[in-house]
Design a protein around this nucleic acid. Structure first.
Lengths: 310, 310
DNA sequence: TTTCTGTTCGCTCATATGAGCACGACACGC
DNA sequence: GCGTGTCGTGCTCATATGAGCGAACAGAAA
């Protein structure tokens, strides 16, 4: 095909500018230039076809829209958010996921919702990045993992302070030494208040833990040597206090000893936002998606691509 | 203003993609997404406003559209073509001007027009670059300048060969030694045929000569020592065989001795394309524009910018 | 020449679109 | 409690737009 000659290029460019930049209608441009509106329409079409006018869609910020939409489609999610990071260290990824989750919550939390937060480093990150959120109650969904120590309740504390609503905290370990200990703790009035509130949660934000590496629950069990048995049972992931097999099946072995929202309660939450990504979390994220528990996923680009390949 | 949150960004990007890339109508998108068409319209508007959708207009090839349009506007030209060159040597500029002029003529010359060409290096360049043109007669508008020697008639010869029409050549010097010599030459039948055809020219392509440096006519007069007197009379430019003052006034001192299209005939041509640019031609181009003779100008970016500044 | 074919143009008419308006939700101040 | 301003929303209706059509023309083939 022949190159478009210069005089016509000028005309294409001029018409395009009037139309796209200046927002005139085709009719106005036609009158102005003494052409028929059809001619103008064809010029605009030609400008589009020949590449004189380029339309690019690009979101500001660290979201990869294409990946997000593909994930959303493939896994039947209400929303998927794929975060792009400059470097792929776990540190960076966690920070970026936290930022995006913070924005997501600022955006979606409505007045007087009941927001549930699990404990985890990514959500601590989130709580540091969030700057505004509607007035809402905050429910701590899981007990505090030993490795986090005093930082364990940071996320709910900060978030609740910001939201100005009621805080339902869970001052207890993530997992108790045995069933009885768990039962005792659950009976404490402070606990009861929070546990009862679980069923009112409208939006749960849970981090994805990867077994065996990258799970706070796993790490809490290692000292007592119990982790191996669960791995043998096929646990590859946790979401909140719920353990999952590679196929996304719920593994309830530990349920009586964990303190936090139950799998059944989680399933009843209208909006479950699962957050997780990074090098070694791929199969955990896959399991979580297979479980159908989350309606929204926040993850990183590398993980997203790997999920789409499989 | 707050940054647009991620979930909304996804929506903006998705709607934009459907609309701009996939060409769906707003109504279709609205149905597909379960929104009102007004909502979709507002999302698209927001995408435009926030810069999620960027529309850039950029012509392929060496034309600067903005400068061209500004020139066109400022000097009331039918068309202005501003050529962008990688390097600003006269050599490069001449080649680029030739190329663009070639494309321009390929585009605009209609069947059975009568095209007039002046002699000059830029038009020789043009004749080498042009590959197709409608069938038309070609009239040589000026005699041959001594410095060009045998290349003087190259442009008309090549152009005419390509067009397949009649060639009206002017095998004579650009300027004769005196009025009588000019009259004698003009009376030759071959000349008469061409000179009579001048009034039929529908499209004249003339190069802009700059006095004192960059003019074939000037250089032809230097040996006989006559150039100085004309410069003293204020000649700063020539277009074809017509001399111009800085204000664009026609200086007719030499008219009886030059062989070629007269100023009056040039004024009568419906479309006069003036071609010229390069370092030292600025004031000549300015004079030519002031003369109101050309309806189209082909020049380089540096000259265009200088013209717009003044 | 005639005929065929492809291109460009401007038309009609159904549909899409924009401007402006009215309504309801909500937050704020008295 | 009650205005009152500001949103976000979807409406109406006049206008802009796209799809598809036939006329006009040019170049190629017969």
């Amino acid at each position: 095909m022949a190159a478009t000659p210069p005089q016509e290029l000028i005309q294409l460019a001029y018409v395009s500018k009037r139309y796209f930049k200046d927002g005139r209608t085709r009719v106005q441009i036609a009158e102005e230039m003494g052409l028929s509106r059809f001619k103008v329409a064809r010029l605009i079409q030609k400008a589009l076809d020949t590449g004189v006018v380029k339309i690019q869609i690009e979101v500001p910020g660290p979201i990869d829209v294409d990946l997000s939409l593909e994930l959303q489609e493939k896994f039947q999610l209400r929303t998927a958010l794929v975060v792009v990071t400059a470097v792929d260290t776990d540190e960076q990824i966690r920070s970026a996921l936290g930022q995006v989750t913070a924005d997501l919550l600022s955006e979606t939390v409505r007045e007087d919702e009941v927001v549930g937060l699990s404990a985890g480093r990514t959500l601590i990150e989130m709580s540091q990045q969030i700057h505004a959120v509607a007035h809402c109650d905050v429910v701590q969904l899981t007990g505090v993992a030993d490795p986090l120590r005093e930082r364990g309740m940071m996320a709910v504390n900060r978030f609740s302070a910001l939201s100005g609503g009621e805080l339902y905290s869970l001052p207890a370990p993530l997992v108790a030494t045995d069933d009885d200990a768990a039962a005792v703790m659950r009976r404490q009035p402070a606990m009861q208040r929070t546990l009862k509130r679980m069923s009112a949660v409208t939006k749960a934000v849970v981090t994805i833990g990867s077994w065996p590496h990258g799970s706070l629950l796993h790490d809490s069990l290692v000292p007592s040597g119990e982790a191996a048995a669960l791995i043998a049972q096929g646990v590859v992931a946790e979401i909140g206090t719920t353990l999952l097999s590679a196929g996304g099946k719920i593994i309830d072995t530990l349920d009586n000893r964990t303190i936090g929202m139950t799998a059944a309660e989680l399933q009843a939450v209208p909006e479950v936002i699962a957050v997780g990504g990074g090098q070694h979390k791929l199969s955990a994220v896959r399991a979580v998606l297979a479980s159908q528990l989350p309606s929204t996923l926040v993850t990183d680009a590398a993980t997203a691509r790997a999920l789409l390949r499989s």
